[in-house]
Structure formats: C-alpha cells, structure tokens
Design a protein around this nucleic acid. Structure first.
Lengths: 206, 206
DNA sequence: ACCTGAACACCGTTCAAGT
DNA sequence: ACCTGAACACCGTTCAAGT
C-alpha cells in the first residue's frame, strides 16, 4: 500500500521523481541523453505529464541543477565539520570535497554550470542555493580572519578566489586537461592539494 | 568570380565554413541552438552535406571547440608578448586575457569544456590544441623559475594551479556566481586581479 | 568526389478530452 | 487537479540517386 513502487508517482510527488530520474539519467549517460520523454517513460507517466510540473525542459534542468547544488553543499558541510582545526585545514577539506564531488558526478556538475544560472529572475531558487555555497565558504574565511590565519581584506573577494580555485581544479580534472599530473598515482589528490595550498599560502596573514 | 558569396562553399572549404557558422550560432544564441540543419541552411547547402565533412554532430562540436582553443591561445600569446617584464606580470596578463575571452565568448567557452575533451582518442587534435595552451602557461612558469621569481617545484603542477585559477575565475564570472563582487564598478577586472595575485603570492620563491 | 531529396525514428511542446 | 493521446513542427542520421 505504501511501498514505493511506480504507482506511487501518480498520487505521490511526481515532481521529485522526475528530478531524481533526471539526475540518474545524466549521471549514467551524460547531459545530452536527458530527454523529457525518456524521463517521463522511466517515471511511468505519459510524455505530457511533466508539463504539469515544469514549464519546459529548461525548468527541469534548473531543478536538477538546484538539487546538484544541494548535494554539493551537503558534502562540503560535512568536509568542514570533520576538520575541527584551523581555517587552512577546513579550506583544504573543502577543496578535496569539491573535487571529489565533481569526479563522482561529472555530468551533473557540468550541467550545474552550463549557463542556466545566468537567468537569475527565471530561476530564483537556483540562484539562492548557489549563493548558499558562496556563504558557506565565506563563513570559513571570516572565522579564519578572526583567528588571524587569513589576511584582512574583503571576505567577499577572498571567497571568490577560493571558489574559483576549487572550481577550476575540479573542472579541469574532469575535462582531462590536467592529464600530465593526474595520470600519476594519487595524482588527483596531490594536484588538488598543490592548488589549494598555493592559494592558501597566498591568502595567509602577513 | 572570387567574391566570397555562398556559391563559393560548393567548391571552397565547406568544412571551414560550417565551423565558422557554428561558432557564430553558438555565440549568438547559446550552445543549445546549434543544430546541424540550421548550420547547413546558413552555409547554403543541404542538410545532408555536413556529413561529408563530419561524422556526426559531436564531431562538428569538437571542431568548433578546437577552433575555440586556437582563438584563446592567440589571445593569451598576445597578452604574454605585451608584457615584457616579470613572470608575475605575464601571469597577471594571462589571467585577464583568459577571463576577457570567456566574457566575450561565454557559450563557446562552455562548449569547449562540456565533456568532449574526455574522448581523447576520438578527437586527438582537440586534445593537442588544449595541450598547447597548457604548454604556453608552463613556458612562462619555467622562465619565471629560471629568473628565481617562482618557486622550484614541478612546473607541471604549478601550471595546473595557474590554469585552474584562471579557469575557475572565468567560469564563475560568466555563470554569475561571483555577483557580490562583479556587480561593482570594475568588479570583474578587480576580482580577476585578486584571484591571480593571491595565487601568485603563494607561488612566490621563498 | 561532393551534394541532393526523400525517408525514418525520435524529441519538445500543445491541447482537447478524460478521470 | 492531474494525466492521457493525438497532433505538429523540427532535428539527427541514412541512403539511393544525381552531377
């Protein structure tokens, strides 16, 4: 009666089901294989049903991206909480978590940064959830500044630098562009550390 | 007789024409609006003609991405040559050039890093041209190390860190994620400088 | 060698109609 | 309120046929 079988979707939360089917499809075979009709088929509804919940395909992708940011935020939060120590350790942990998430979900991460975030008014909740990530990083920065471990310039700007480094490292790794280094044993963890540490050193209090 | 009108395509270089039409389409209205039939229509050939030059749509996108890397490399080269001075100045110049290119061609840059680079064997020339970029950065690093301005660790790793920072900054800017800072006057140039300088400081000889 | 035109399968989206 | 089925326009790809 309340087993989570396909029948449930019809009275249950089809919206949520579509999002999760979409994430699975993207993870399995890339973003290009995300078609609305297939999502509906797998969810067990007609191809027109998704239009009850999403204005169009872009709206579904926006919702999927939003869920992606939520999942990433959870990983990051966990990484921070595991390190009880210095801001530097926390930043390192965040970098590893960010890169690890990208390696685990490359297609999803690509989709999250594929242009939809530009339309801020159209997808406000997508913007909100990405901003949550920004604030998470900034909190670490501010605490680090209070402890005197990070230099006293605008925390907004420092946050930009940190997110940029994490993101660039993650993307270039999943795009195979750092091959000369990532090929080696533990290459990915190593280069992530090199990238983060170089930046952290530059951010140090002086 | 040799005016560059549409007739030329039939005996001229249709391949090149398709690539440039593709770039224009992507630049104008985003990557999602790149359809093969429209490209063919604009080029003045039938919708089947592109298949003489490209195995499928992905192959055309790979060629477009390749051209994108070439264009980016030209900008970077120019940025480097303009600064005759220190490695630090050259790195700063490269960062600005990279970000500027991304802002000018956001959809093209997204396409260049949308997963095709993973299929190394399928698109070897795409991999080659992206590696050219890597080498360009590394050359600056090595010269900087010889002058004693950059610390003496593996130049491959330092290059990864630099490219990561440039790329992350560029992508987050075009994806509107650095809004808190880029909104301000000269915000983009300013944050690019903050990002690059933080890293450069961390890369310094000690 | 290079291009055309018809054909096929399939997708995004809409809409009248069903429960 | 939510879903279905038919319908429309359009795309990627293939292939026999044209020059």
């Amino acid at each position: 009666m309340d087993t989570p079988n396909k029948k449930t979707y019809h009275h249950g939360d089809l919206r949520k089901t579509l999002i999760h089917v979409g994430i699975e499809l993207i993870s399995e075979s890339g973003a290009s294989s995300l078609d609305l009709r297939k999502v509906a088929r797998i969810a067990g509804v007609s191809h027109a049903a998704p239009y009850r919940h999403f204005a169009d395909k872009k709206a579904l992708i926006a919702a999927i991206s939003e869920e992606g940011f939520n999942l990433l935020a959870i990983e990051m939060e966990q990484a921070i909480s595991m390190k009880d120590g210095s801001a530097h350790e926390q930043l390192r942990g965040m970098g590893h978590a960010y890169v690890q998430f990208a390696i685990t979900n490359p297609s999803l991460v690509r989709e999250m940064f594929s242009g939809l975030t530009i339309e801020r008014e159209a997808y406000p909740s997508l913007y909100d959830v990405s901003k949550k990530l920004f604030n998470m990083i900034e909190t670490v920065v501010i605490i680090g500044q209070e402890k005197g471990n990070i230099k006293q310039i605008d925390s907004n700007e420092l946050t930009c630098a940190i997110w940029s480094m994490m993101h660039g490292t993650a993307i270039l790794i999943i795009e195979n562009q750092l091959k000369p280094v990532t090929m080696q044993i533990n290459g990915i963890e190593h280069i992530t550390e090199v990238c983060m540490d170089s930046l952290i050193l530059g951010l140090g209090a002086s």
